[in-house]
């Protein structure tokens, strides 16, 4: 793009953001921190689709930060029409604030999760340690990197996925599962506070043999550090990580954007959108699109939070509370 056209675009943005929108639909999508490029790819396609169907233009504004911080901001008045988060608990927060109906999981297919992911592995070039599954991670010669499960949602998913794997492998024996987690924690040389820092520890400081993070991110990291030729490894079993969406009913009503907000989230389930999501390495619910991307997103046995742990409320109570299982195992 030339300088002039850039400046012109910027001027247009400035005018648009200061002038009131006339005869135009407008929604604010409040989202998690690393979804910027994903929605940058999705939004123009939806806008074209909406224009074709209704003849109206739509502007989609984006706000990105940590999912929980965003929930807090919406609760305090950030005028989100829709939220697209990476933690179900963050939408539950909005329910408590009276902004989202309690039955939000039933308002869109697949538990209101148009796409999902799972904790997966990224290993060094040619996988020298031959890491294939969770049980390789407790070997004495393997060093594992993932963020602190006590401070990071990403790390929490890794902890729960490993726990779910151990339960699955041991026929539901809690004691053996906890032993497995203790061994896993012992193999982690450094617990970073967040996913980004853990990525840097693995990729730039070259610590550890395997990085565990959302599968959707392993591909992005591999691409960013292409010269290091990291290899993506999908374990045999992992945890279904929902990426839940909801219309913030109270705000949408006030902004008169209920129709377009619902259309926007419904559109995420169309093959057109699902393909873009799969290209960004998220798992999708559309069977034909999933089949098309089978190679980059291989088959895996997924267990849900409900199946393995009996729901988030129980996880909070048994695992994440003060003196809970996570704290006990983590301090060992």
């Amino acid at each position: 793009m030339s300088l002039i056209s850039n400046l012109r675009a910027a001027a247009a943005v400035l005018v648009l953001s200061t002038a009131p929108a006339l005869a135009q639909d407008k929604i604010l999508n409040v989202s998690y921190d690393i979804a910027r490029e994903l929605f940058e790819a999705l939004n123009p396609v939806f806008a074209a689709d909406w224009k074709a169907k209704t003849g109206r233009d739509v502007t989609i504004d984006q706000s990105h930060a940590g999912s929980s911080a965003q929930a807090r901001a919406v609760l305090e008045g950030l005028p989100a029409d829709v939220v697209t988060f990476n933690q179900e608990t963050d939408i539950d927060t909005l329910v408590q604030g009276g902004l989202v109906p309690e039955n939000w999981r039933e308002l869109f297919p697949n538990g209101a999760s148009p796409y999902y992911s799972l904790p997966a592995f990224l290993v060094r070039k040619d996988n020298p340690k031959g890491i294939k599954d969770w049980n390789d991670l407790t070997r004495e010669d393997v060093k594992v990197v993932f963020p602190n499960p006590r401070t990071s949602g990403n790390g929490r998913y890794t902890y729960l996925a490993a726990y779910a794997y151990a339960l699955d492998a041991n026929g539901g024996n809690q004691e053996e599962a906890q032993e497995f987690i203790t061994k896993l924690f012992a193999n982690v040389p450094v617990f970073d506070t967040g996913g980004r820092a853990a990525t840097q520890t693995f990729a730039e400081r070259e610590i550890g043999d395997v990085l565990i993070t959302f599968e959707a991110e392993t591909a992005g990291i591999a691409a960013q550090y292409a010269d290091k030729e990291f290899v993506r490894v999908t374990p045999s079993v992992s945890l279904f990580a929902a990426f839940p969406v909801a219309v913030v009913a109270a705000n949408a009503e006030k902004n008169g954007s209920t129709e377009v907000s619902n259309a926007y989230l419904s559109w995420l389930y169309t093959p057109e959108a699902q393909k873009i999501l799969a290209q960004n390495h998220y798992r999708v619910t559309d069977a034909s699109v999933a089949a098309e991307f089978k190679e980059s997103l291989p088959e895996v046995k997924l267990v849900t939070v409900n199946e393995a742990f009996g729901g988030w409320a129980k996880i909070r109570e048994e695992h994440l509370s003060e003196g809970g299982i996570l704290e006990t195992l983590f301090n060992n």
Partner: peptide, 19 residues
């Protein structure tokens, strides 16, 4: 909100956090 309420330091952080 990018293009609306992101100041320059926030924009830097956001760009840095993107892969």
């Amino acid at each position: 909100t990018r293009g609306q309420t992101n100041t320059l330091p926030l924009q830097v952080e956001q760009l840095f956090n993107d892969l």
